[in-house]
Amino acid sequence: MGMATKIRILLIERNMKIKDLAEQLGYSGNNLSNKLKNDNFSEKELLKIAEILDCDYKATFIMRDTGKEI
Protein backbone atom coordinates (compact mmCIF):
# COMPACT_ATOMS: atom_id res chain seq x y z
CA MET A 1 0.00 0.00 0.00
CA GLY A 2 1.48 3.33 -1.04
CA MET A 3 1.72 6.42 1.12
CA ALA A 4 -0.96 8.19 -0.91
CA THR A 5 -3.44 5.43 -0.08
CA LYS A 6 -2.50 5.56 3.58
CA ILE A 7 -2.95 9.34 3.63
CA ARG A 8 -6.37 9.01 1.99
CA ILE A 9 -7.40 6.45 4.62
CA LEU A 10 -6.21 8.75 7.40
CA LEU A 11 -8.16 11.64 5.91
CA ILE A 12 -11.32 9.52 6.05
CA GLU A 13 -10.53 8.43 9.62
CA ARG A 14 -9.99 12.06 10.65
CA ASN A 15 -13.03 13.28 8.71
CA MET A 16 -10.88 15.69 6.71
CA LYS A 17 -10.84 16.67 3.07
CA ILE A 18 -7.78 16.94 0.86
CA LYS A 19 -8.42 20.68 0.77
CA ASP A 20 -8.21 20.88 4.57
CA LEU A 21 -4.89 19.05 4.67
CA ALA A 22 -3.55 21.12 1.78
CA GLU A 23 -4.35 24.35 3.62
CA GLN A 24 -2.55 23.19 6.76
CA LEU A 25 0.46 22.19 4.68
CA GLY A 26 0.46 25.53 2.87
CA TYR A 27 -0.24 23.85 -0.50
CA SER A 28 -2.95 24.44 -3.03
CA GLY A 29 -5.58 21.73 -3.29
CA ASN A 30 -4.36 20.91 -6.79
CA ASN A 31 -0.75 20.58 -5.64
CA LEU A 32 -1.67 18.07 -2.92
CA SER A 33 -4.00 16.19 -5.27
CA ASN A 34 -1.12 15.82 -7.74
CA LYS A 35 1.21 14.62 -4.99
CA LEU A 36 -1.40 12.03 -3.98
CA LYS A 37 -1.93 10.99 -7.60
CA ASN A 38 1.81 10.50 -8.13
CA ASP A 39 2.44 9.18 -4.60
CA ASN A 40 5.32 11.65 -4.37
CA PHE A 41 6.12 12.78 -0.83
CA SER A 42 9.37 13.63 0.88
CA GLU A 43 10.17 12.33 4.35
CA LYS A 44 9.76 15.89 5.65
CA GLU A 45 6.27 16.14 4.13
CA LEU A 46 5.23 12.80 5.59
CA LEU A 47 6.35 13.87 9.05
CA LYS A 48 4.34 17.09 8.74
CA ILE A 49 1.28 15.20 7.48
CA ALA A 50 1.56 12.81 10.43
CA GLU A 51 1.71 15.76 12.82
CA ILE A 52 -1.35 17.41 11.24
CA LEU A 53 -3.31 14.13 11.30
CA ASP A 54 -2.23 13.42 14.91
CA CYS A 55 -0.29 10.28 14.01
CA ASP A 56 3.15 8.86 14.55
CA TYR A 57 5.19 8.25 11.42
CA LYS A 58 7.81 5.54 11.34
CA ALA A 59 9.98 4.77 8.34
CA THR A 60 12.39 1.89 8.68
CA PHE A 61 14.51 -0.48 6.68
CA ILE A 62 14.48 -4.11 7.73
CA MET A 63 17.33 -6.30 6.59
CA ARG A 64 15.82 -9.38 4.98
CA ASP A 65 18.58 -11.77 5.93
CA THR A 66 18.80 -10.80 9.61
CA GLY A 67 15.52 -9.03 10.34
CA LYS A 68 17.51 -6.16 11.81
CA GLU A 69 15.57 -2.90 11.72
CA ILE A 70 17.47 0.25 10.76
Rank of each mutant, 00 (worst) to 15 (best):
T60R: 04
T66E: 09
I7M: 07
F41Y: 10
K37W: 03
C55S: 14
E23A: 12
L46P: 04
E13C: 10
L46W: 03
T60C: 10
T60E: 14
L21E: 03
E13Q: 10
L47G: 00
K6M: 14
E51R: 02
I70L: 04
L21P: 07
L47F: 01
T5P: 05
I9C: 15
I9Y: 15
S42R: 09
R64Y: 01
D20I: 01
M63I: 14
K68N: 08
A50T: 02
N15I: 02
N30D: 15
K17S: 03
K58I: 09
M3P: 05
E69H: 01
E45G: 14
I18Y: 02
L11C: 00
S33V: 06
K44N: 15
E69P: 03
E69Y: 05
K6D: 12
D65R: 10
I18E: 05
I70Y: 06
D39P: 08
D65S: 12
D39E: 06
T5R: 09
L46C: 10
R14L: 05
S42K: 09
I18S: 00
D20N: 02
F61I: 06
I62A: 04
L32G: 11
G29C: 06
L47K: 03
K19Y: 06
K68G: 09
M16E: 06
L11P: 01
I18F: 00
I49K: 00
E69W: 05
N38M: 06
L11K: 04
K19V: 02
E13P: 10
I52F: 08
K37I: 04
N30I: 13
K58W: 02
L25Y: 13
L32E: 10
D39V: 14
N40Y: 08
I70M: 15
M3Q: 11
K35N: 11
L11V: 00
F61N: 02
I49P: 15
E43F: 01
L36E: 06
N40K: 15
G67F: 11
F61Y: 05
T5N: 07
T5D: 10
R64C: 00
L10W: 12
A50Q: 02
R8M: 07
M16H: 01
N30H: 12
K58N: 04
L53T: 09
R14A: 15
I9H: 14
K37T: 06
